[in-house]
Nucleic acid binder design. Structure first.
Lengths: 231, 231
DNA sequence: GCAAACTCTAAACGCCGTGTAGTAATCGAA
DNA sequence: TTCGATTACTACACGGCGTTTAGAGTTTGC
């Protein structure tokens, strides 16, 4: 049961974040300025310090929110896809790219480096979202792993990876070998690469059909494991 | 024959860039401030405007220099590698990753978004460097293309791509089909993905051996085309 | 009804990029 | 060699930024 004060406080915090997101979408991360937010709210910049201890904390909160929205979209697409081994994986990938293209500044904020020296390790909702992304992808790999006929190269061992994530992964997906987890990380990179190039504008001078490029890459990613191509 | 004035001017410009690079390596793109540079040089910030019309122009110049250094390293590694179909490709990829890991802030500056609304299209040395990167990778694909036994999926056509880059590519590599150029872009993304995740710290909570992950990914990238694995 | 907690303003500090006016040095040519 | 023009630089100002501090004004819980 939230008190009146708590409710007002939550509303104001939401308004701050909403305006911050609009500023970011319009002018990139640097456009998120406490003074600009306060100006739009008819306040002074100092008032925001009642809600966020510092600008970096506000941005970190935004990252967590954006990451959550991205993952919600990805999971929604995955669950709406058919149950063929690669279909859910493909749906996830396409959903991530579509979200990124629709929210380029948001994607940059998530995977870029808006707060140089900061970056808290394994703490806070932003780290939780990252973990959720990693877990979601690993789960998709675990689903298709039994159907794979071409094993990825390399000699992955559990000791290659961070102990915490290994513990979580092995508990959730006991059947998955270390090579499966390695594959999940590699797929993450493979998806991220083309999306990052596109979102940062490095493909604009090259291709007019980035979605075609990405789709072909994802199809090959799936078929190269010996799975039938979905769709 | 440079006059004394020109020589001094070039030296000062170089000193400005050198200090800017050091500041960037230490504190990220935001640490590149004209006042900080001038402070280290015993000048005032206004003096830098005799050398660069604006801070963004200085950063753009830095990007071009860094991109050139990255490509020099990649081409050097490629030329030092054996002549097996995939060996030169692998050497290029590993060299890019190693440069990125050694110069993380530089890699971020090249492929990130330090200048939000700016980004000149197809002009200036930074765009030239990007073209050189793309051309270098396309050339490597053209080298291995005849030896490929597994054709990448998708239906690439020349009209999918930017007219200028198509003209340059078809002139330089007449035998390469559009699917080959598409493959080059896709490889670019595949290399960039894992490197970007690593450089921005998104792999630190996951794997302790990112180089192993990258190497395996590159080996699979080559072997999935039906080429023998190098090394 | 009142003290405590909270929210906000106003002003200041030290950063930042950028523009302008003026000074001092240096250069090219008469 | 001297003189006008160009160049390199300083000093200062402007507005913007994040952040801190002191103090009002309001709301809350007892």
């Amino acid at each position: 049961m939230p008190t009146r004060r708590e409710r007002l406080r939550a509303e104001t915090a939401t308004e701050i974040k909403t305006i911050a997101l609009r500023l970011m979408a319009a002018g990139g991360p640097d456009a998120i300025s406490l003074r600009a937010i306060a100006r739009e709210m008819g306040m002074t910049a100092g008032a925001i310090y009642s809600y966020f201890p510092t600008r970096d904390d506000l941005v970190t909160t935004l990252i967590a929110d954006l990451y959550t929205a991205l993952l919600d979209a990805a999971e929604r697409a995955r669950d709406a896809a058919g149950s063929a081994p690669g279909a859910r994986l493909l749906a996830w990938a396409e959903a991530v790219r579509e979200w990124a293209v629709a929210n380029p500044e948001g994607y940059k904020l998530i995977y870029g480096d808006p707060v140089p020296g900061y970056r808290a390790p394994t703490s806070g909702p932003a780290a939780d979202a990252e973990l959720r992304a990693c877990a979601g992808l690993t789960e998709l790999v675990a689903e298709v792993w039994p159907a794979i006929t071409v094993t990825p190269s390399g000699t992955a061992r559990w000791t290659d990876f961070d102990a915490d994530i290994v513990a979580l992964t092995r508990k959730a997906l006991p059947m998955l070998p270390p090579a499966g987890f390695a594959l999940a990380l590699r797929m993450w990179g493979r998806m991220h690469g083309l999306i990052a190039l596109e979102v940062y504008g490095h493909l604009t001078g090259q291709t007019r059909r980035p979605e075609k490029l990405f789709h072909a890459e994802m199809i090959d990613m799936i078929t190269s494991l010996g799975l039938r191509a979905p769709k």
